[in-house]
Every structure is written in structure tokens, then in C-alpha cells.
């Protein structure tokens, strides 16, 4: 494999994730609509929204400064950088054959996502007004509680794999497929709890609302418009699919270890199937549960934390 190939693959997977992100949101919305006996918008609706936003002009809050303009750009960039780190179509069979200039591992991925969240919150405060502040405050609170659990889940896998590199983990797991042990079960449950929180869905956040009492993420986007809003919305779609891909890389890693075109196509099909399963899971949960009261969240995330902790304990003790 040449020096450039791993980079080309990483960038190709990144582009794929960014392009497919809105589609996943569209599919989830469609599934939810069908579950609620509505027709719903087409699955391509998010793309239409995005192109509309891109064409529009910007209305900016008159108190906002240079941060407000810089934030959407940086948020989208950091989320895309995170998308380059998760294996989708291809996982190297061993760590040794990875790129000579590795782009990063799971910790960097979570770091990029955290940077995106940090900057979004900064942008929300720049406009002034209570909605942005409330959204930022709540989002940072939830993130604070989610992040350690997410790390713990990643670590529960990486203490046996001996690496936090997602490609290497997926490759390692793909080689010994079928040995889905007891710790994996617990960690997967923890991850599903976190998936709901990290993608901003019921019961943690309600993506469909603009009611000030219920919104977390949307509250921060309230003052953005036009291309800035385009960046933030696309970043949110991308983040959702990245977290889904992270679940798959850690727990359902049937990812081909070859770069032959046929293997890549197979990988794409498998990825689509697994993502669809996760999308159905999200749609089902969103349709059948109510949003939790904000201060009930620690308890909900506590399930995730304890499961992840037990997974690590089962591995190490």
C-alpha cells in the first residue's frame, strides 16, 4: 500500500459520512412519521433544507462579534475531522499497516466532537439573549455527563485490543468475529444509552421542538441563519452518523480488511444495513418514550455508566 492510500481512504470515508449524514436523519424522520401514522416528508428533505440554507443570506445579531461568524465554520470543520477517524468501509487487519501519518484515534474523535460542542456553545453565548445561554448551559451539562461514560465504553474495548485506534480495534474484532463476550453485551447497552444522548434525541433532547423549555441543541442554533446555520445543521447530521459509525466500529465490526472494489462495495452495503438497524432503534425509542425531565438525566445516564463500568470490571477482574 502506498503512502497516500490510507489518507485517500480516510478522506473518502469522511466525504461519504458527510454526504450520507443528512440521509440518515431523513430516514429516521420518515420512520418516525410512519410509526406515528403520518406520511412524513421524503427522506431527501434534509438535503433540500440544507441547499435552501446555503442560498440564503445571513441575519446576524447586532451584538455578536467575530466569534459568531467563525464558530459555524470551525464547528463543521472539527466534526468533519472527526468523521475522518472512524472506519466505515475498510479496517486495516493490524495496526502496523496503518498510515505513516495516522490521523488519530477514538480519543481524538471524541476530542473533535467536544471541540465542536464547545465552539457551538461559545457561538450561542455571543448573540446574547437567554435562549442561547440556556441551550449552551444544558448542552454542556449533558456533555459533561456523557463524555466520561463514552470514554469508559471505548476503554472497555481498548483494554483488550491494546489500542484506542478505531481502525485497529475494528480490524482486531473483525478477525476474531463471533466472540462477542459478556463485557461486550454490557458495553453495547451502555453505548445505546449514549447514542440517544449523543445524537440529541428523545429521551435526552427533542430534535423537533423549538419550545424553550425542552430544547438543548436547537436553542444554541436559534440565532444562526443562512450559511452559518447550514454549517451547524450539517455538522449535527454528520455528528449523528459519526456516532453511529463509532457504535459499529466498536461492537459490530464486520468491516472488510481489503481495499478491493468488491470488498469496499460489500463494506458499504454492510454499513448501510447496520446504520439502518440503528436508525430503526432511534425511531422506535423516539416514538415510544417521552422526553425525560432534565434533572432525571443523570439517572438515565447512570444506567450507561454502571453498564460500562461493569463491562470494564468483567474484562479486568
Amino acid at each position: 500500500m502506498g503512502r497516500a492510500t490510507p489518507w485517500a481512504l480516510a478522506l473518502g470515508q469522511m466525504a461519504l459520512l458527510v454526504l450520507l449524514g443528512p440521509l440518515v436523519t431523513g430516514v429516521i424522520q420518515k420512520l418516525k412519521a410512519r410509526l406515528q401514522c403520518r406520511r412524513g416528508a421524503g427522506i431527501l428533505q434534509p438535503y433540500r433544507d440544507l441547499t435552501k440554507l446555503l442560498r440564503k443570506g445571513t441575519v446576524q445579531a447586532d451584538t455578536a462579534g467575530s466569534f459568531f461568524r467563525a464558530v459555524p465554520v470551525l464547528v463543521l470543520a472539527s466534526t468533519c475531522a472527526a468523521a475522518a477517524l472512524v472506519p466505515v468501509l475498510f479496517a486495516p487487519p493490524a495496526a502496523g499497516s496503518a498510515s505513516p501519518l495516522p490521523l488519530g484515534d477514538a480519543i481524538l474523535l471524541l476530542g473533535w466532537l467536544a471541540l465542536g460542542r464547545f465552539l457551538t456553545a461559545v457561538g450561542a453565548l455571543d448573540a446574547g439573549g437567554a435562549f442561547g445561554g440556556m441551550g449552551a448551559s444544558r448542552e454542556m451539562t449533558v456533555a459533561t455527563l456523557v463524555e466520561p461514560v463514552l470514554m469508559l465504553v471505548v476503554f472497555s474495548v481498548s483494554v483488550v485490543a491494546g489500542t484506542t485506534d478505531l481502525g485497529a480495534i475494528a480490524g482486531h474484532l473483525s478477525l476474531r468475529r463471533g466472540s462477542f463476550g459478556a463485557p461486550d453485551i454490557l458495553a453495547l447497552f451502555a453505548m445505546l444509552v449514549l447514542l440517544l444522548a449523543e445524537t440529541g434525541r428523545i429521551p435526552v433532547d427533542n430534535p423537533d421542538t423549538h419550545l424553550e423549555l425542552t430544547m438543548l441543541h436547537e436553542g444554541m442554533l436559534l440565532e444562526h441563519s443562512g450559511p452559518g446555520l447550514f454549517c451547524l445543521v450539517l455538522a449535527h447530521h454528520t455528528k449523528q452518523i459519526v456516532v453511529m459509525a463509532l457504535v459499529q466500529a466498536l461492537f459490530l465490526p464486520w468491516i472488510p480488511a481489503s481495499t478491493a472494489p468488491f470488498a469496499l462495495a460489500l463494506g458499504l452495503g454492510a454499513f448501510a444495513a447496520r446504520t439502518l438497524v440503528l436508525a430503526i432503534f432511534l425511531a422506535l425509542v423516539e416514538s415510544s418514550y417521552a422526553k425525560l425531565r432534565f434533572f432525571r438525566l443523570p439517572q438515565f445516564l447512570g444506567i450507561g455508566f454502571l453498564s460500562a463500568f461493569l463491562a470494564v470490571a468483567l474484562r479486568l477482574l
Binding site: 465554520v73 468533519c80 484515534d105 491494546g162
Partner: peptide, 21 residues
């Protein structure tokens, strides 16, 4: 096994993406 990370490459990618966006 082990983990490797190139902060330089990651930062360069981030900067390039930010410019593009």
C-alpha cells in the same frame, strides 16, 4: 498493539477543512 496519532496531520486536516468550509 498500540495507538499512534499525528497531531500535525490532524491539525493540517482541520485547517484545510476550515478553509474549505
Amino acid at each position: 498493539a498500540g495507538t499512534a496519532l499525528s497531531m500535525t496531520a490532524a491539525a493540517a486536516l482541520f485547517a484545510a477543512l476550515a478553509l474549505l468550509v
